[in-house]
């Protein structure tokens, strides 16, 4: 903005251009000095290390001793042919789709119910929002016990003949052969989705509630005066107006679910036949147990690219929106 204005002015008064430019540099220098520490820190500790990870992922460092000789895309090729990584891709995809769908729908529905000016609204809001305050590790341990086939709720369910295997179930629904693995919906991942949804729905509820409160009463009134039923008001007016919230919720949930590690590590681990394994868990185990540093770095880079698929278009569109 500042720049545009000065340029316009200098076009009008070309003889002062040199003077203005010098002032600009001092300004810039000053600003630069203030942000330089954070630029340097972020450049080194975020982008520098991303670059370093990228380099390691193309090296031969798959032993205890660092070996930085160039290996090209060998590690990536290995991963995409690896049974476990293919299973990870399937699980991440299924988990992300189910998790986002349920969080968006349940958050929206609960927010609309809470918005009906019911009694004790703040109590319900807090109850729904409370799981957000827990860490994923706690959620993982709690749900591991709740859904353990031989303890907890299942002892009760068994009395009624409901003998569910939950996360120890190795069945894959709607499966077909894809690469080395059976592609489909692993039943075990549904148990993890339940835990993750329990934790994150409160967050999307809070966002939708804020969105609902931001919709001006006049719009709803106008629709009602035009003869729209209450159902139609929601379908044609309110829910379309919540679209920006939905986009934000999807972006936030996507980056959580694509990078998920702690919940699964605490709750199920990789699971039998890797039915609940995700790239984060594989990365941790292959790097720090198997000493496959280059393979681990390659998984990290692939995870970064997955998240970028969601985040970059969002950043571009929000930038467009600003200007």
């Amino acid at each position: 903005m500042e720049l545009n204005r000065t340029e316009k002015r200098s076009a009008v008064l070309p003889e002062t251009k040199a003077k203005r430019n010098r002032k600009l540099t001092t300004d810039h220098l000053l600003a630069l000095c203030f942000i330089l520490p954070s630029i340097v820190l972020i450049a080194v500790f975020v982008y520098g290390f991303i670059g370093w990870t990228g380099y390691v992922s193309m090296s031969n460092w798959n032993t205890l001793v660092p070996d930085f000789s160039f290996a090209g895309l060998k590690n990536y090729a290995y991963l995409f042919q690896d049974y476990r990584f293919q299973a990870d891709l399937r699980n991440t995809l299924v988990f992300t789709v189910l998790f986002i769908a349920v969080v968006v729908l349940a958050g929206q529905a609960l927010a609309i119910f809470l918005d009906q000016k019911i009694r004790g609204e703040s109590l319900f809001r807090n109850i729904f929002f409370f799981p957000m305050a827990l860490s994923f590790v706690v959620t993982g341990v709690v749900w591991q016990w709740l859904l353990n086939p031989s303890t907890g709720v299942n002892l009760f369910l068994k009395k009624f003949g409901l003998d569910s295997m939950w996360y120890t179930n190795t069945d894959i629904l709607a499966g077909f052969k894809w690469g080395k693995i059976e592609f489909g919906i692993p039943v075990a991942i549904i148990a993890v989705v339940i835990a993750a949804v329990w934790q994150m729905t409160g967050f999307s509820l809070a966002m939708y509630l804020a969105g609902l409160r931001a919709i001006p009463e006049e719009l709803k009134e106008a629709a009602r005066i035009d003869g729209a039923s209450e159902f139609k008001v929601y379908r044609k007016v309110i829910i379309p107006l919540l679209r920006p919230i939905t986009v934000s919720v999807i972006i936030i949930m996507a980056h959580i679910s694509l990078k998920i590690f702690d919940l699964i590590y605490a709750m199920t681990g990789p699971g039998a036949n890797f039915v609940t394994d995700v790239p984060g868990v594989y990365m941790f185990e292959t790097t720090f147990r198997g000493n496959y540093y280059a393979n681990g770095a390659a998984i990290a880079i692939i995870m970064l690219l997955f998240v970028a698929i969601f985040i970059v278009p969002y950043l571009i569109s929000s930038r467009k929106g600003e200007s």
């Binding site: 190795t170 039998a272 198997g290 496959y292």
Partner: peptide, 26 residues
């Protein structure tokens, strides 16, 4: 350790799939 990690993975698959040939191959 690297070999062991891969054996553990092969065992984890085998315990469910029980495919002897696939296990020996891995």
């Amino acid at each position: 350790e690297g070999f062991l990690t891969k054996v553990n993975q092969a065992i984890n698959i085998f315990v469910t799939q029980k495919d002897v040939d696939q296990f020996i191959d891995s």
